[in-house]
Every structure is written in structure tokens, then in C-alpha cells.
Design a protein around this nucleic acid. Structure first.
Lengths: 143, 143
DNA sequence: ATCTATAGTGAAAATCATTTTCAATAACGG
DNA sequence: CCGTTATTGAAAATGATTTTCACTATAGAT
């Protein structure tokens, strides 16, 4: 839920002794309203029309804060740009990346979730999280 | 097998009409002799003692060639450096990344391999390959 | 409400990894 | 051995991200 994420971020800001600013609000709104898997540049460009005074560096800094606070996650899919996606607590998903058009879609799979624990356990690893990415051609690109 | 990889690379070079140079040999030797998951800089530094004339750019270019030829694979684990790992044909493995010390270890798991096909199929995806990474604390870092 | 200490901001400069440029060099086929 | 063409090393260029710095805005105390 969008509201939940705002709360989480506010709490994070407060606990860290940081300040709640107009820019952070605007960027958070924009981030929550967008598509998932936004790159920093995409978000910046999208913001620029309505808020031309917000600087590039602020968007970078703010997205990093989102990631720290737990409402966003950083991702690199090998195209040289860091992307941020929404994190809904308690939910985990993985990705399908089309090597044709670059589209990124998501999937959830319980077996994958269970497997991470098994594998981690058998290697003496204290698991935190995992990433799984399937690369291939999406339906549209197969034609 | 190291020899097999050399053969594969030679064949790749020949088929592409490229040239087999002293530098490429040296870098290939070094790459095959190293640890898996080398970053470009690590390999360059390691090379520099014995071969101080080999340039940074050549190492970059050559590792890219290795990846193109199929004997290496590019990887990004989120630390800002591209790493290259050995590829043995017919074998696939995934990774355990320690968030404490940064150590990267490997695992193979048949169920994961099977699952990629199922998931891809159910999304109309023509799968090429996948990556799975488990992040957590390795046994040593848990103490 | 005002003050004050401190965090945040925007713009530009700096940094880091990677890529390209370019003149000089080295392979390969003939 | 020659000529064509790929390759090389060094330096400059690039692209994404981070830092610097002078200025501004926020939050809490007054």
C-alpha cells in the first residue's frame, strides 16, 4: 500500500534524525506513482516538468534513502543503469528480463522461496534475501 | 578443462577473423589460472608484475572477448565492478554472496535448473539463461 | 513566532568504471 | 618480405554516480 510506504519512510527519517523536506515528499510521490523498475534518470526526467528546480543529485540521494528505509530496492540488470523498484513488505518477487526489448516483468514462485532456505542452510549461510532473474525472449519478441 | 577453453577461444578468434596476439595469450593464461569471479582490475593488477607493458584497456577488451567467445561470463554483484567468471560448457551454477565479507561461492541445484523452465514456460518466455544469487552471512561471518 | 544548530539542496566539479580515439605496432595471407 | 587490417597502449572521452560548497530550509528550543 502506498500509504504504508509513506509511513515507513517517515518513520525512517524521524529515527535517523533526518528532515522531512518538500523535495523528498515530491520524489516519494513520484516514485510511488510510477511503474516499477524506474531508473534514476527516468524518474528525474519525469519529475522535471512539474518540478524543474529539483536537482539530479537530490533524486540520487533520495532514492538511496528509499532503499535504506526499506521501501525500495536497488537493482542492476546489466544495462549500466541502477534501477529502483517498490518493496512491499512480506512480498518477494523475481524477474523475467527480455533480452530482446529489455522489458522487465515479475513473477512470484513459492518453490523458489522455499528453495533459497534449503540451499542456504546446506551451505551454512544465514540467508538475507535472494535475487533470481530469468533472461530470454518475451512472447512478443519471439515472433 | 583449461585446454578446452583455450581451444574454444582460438576457434572463436579464427572464425571472427581476429588475430591471435601475445597479449591475448597472456591474459587468457592469467584468467584461466585465477580464482573465479575476478574483477578486471584484480586481473590487471595481478598481470602487471610479470607483464607491465599490457595496458588497462587491453585487459578490458580481452575480457569482453572471452565473454563473447563463451568461455567467460560477465557478472555484477552490486559492488560497482564487473566481474568475469569461468564458464564450463554444460555446467551451470549459481551464487552465494556474503554480505559481510563479500566472498562469493557457488552452488549447483537441479531443482533450480528445472524450475527456470517451468516458470519461463508459464510466462510464454523463451528462456536463455538465468541468474540466482543468495545474499546472506557466510558461516565465518556469523560469529 | 523567532532563533539556532544542523541537515538538505542545487549546481558544478570530482570520481569511478568503462569505452573510445589515435598514432604506432604486430599478425596473417599472399 | 609486403601490404592490409586488426591490435595495442596511452591518453582523452564518456556515462553514471558521488561529492563539494555556499546557501537554504527544517525541527526543536527559546
Amino acid at each position: 500500500m502506498e500509504l504504508v510506504k509513506k509511513k515507513i519512510f517517515e518513520k525512517f527519517i524521524a529515527e535517523k534524525g533526518l528532515k522531512s523536506t518538500r523535495q523528498r515528499e515530491i520524489i516519494l510521490e513520484a516514485f510511488l506513482a510510477t511503474d516499477r523498475h524506474m531508473s534514476i534518470e527516468e524518474l528525474y526526467l519525469q519529475l522535471r516538468d512539474a518540478h524543474p528546480t529539483i536537482g539530479y543529485a537530490t533524486v540520487y540521494r533520495t532514492l538511496k534513502l528509499f532503499a535504506e528505509s526499506g521501501i525500495a530496492r536497488e537493482f542492476q540488470f546489466g544495462d549500466g543503469q541502477t534501477r529502483y523498484e517498490h518493496v512491499t513488505q512480506g512480498e518477494h518477487h523475481d524477474h523475467l528480463v527480455c533480452v530482446g526489448c529489455g522489458a522487465i516483468s515479475e513473477f512470484t514462485n513459492d518453490a523458489v522461496e522455499r528453495m533459497q532456505d534449503e540451499i542456504a542452510a546446506s551451505h551454512g549461510f544465514a540467508i538475507r534475501y535472494h535475487k533470481m532473474e530469468l533472461y530470454g525472449l518475451c512472447a512478443a519478441c519471439q515472433k
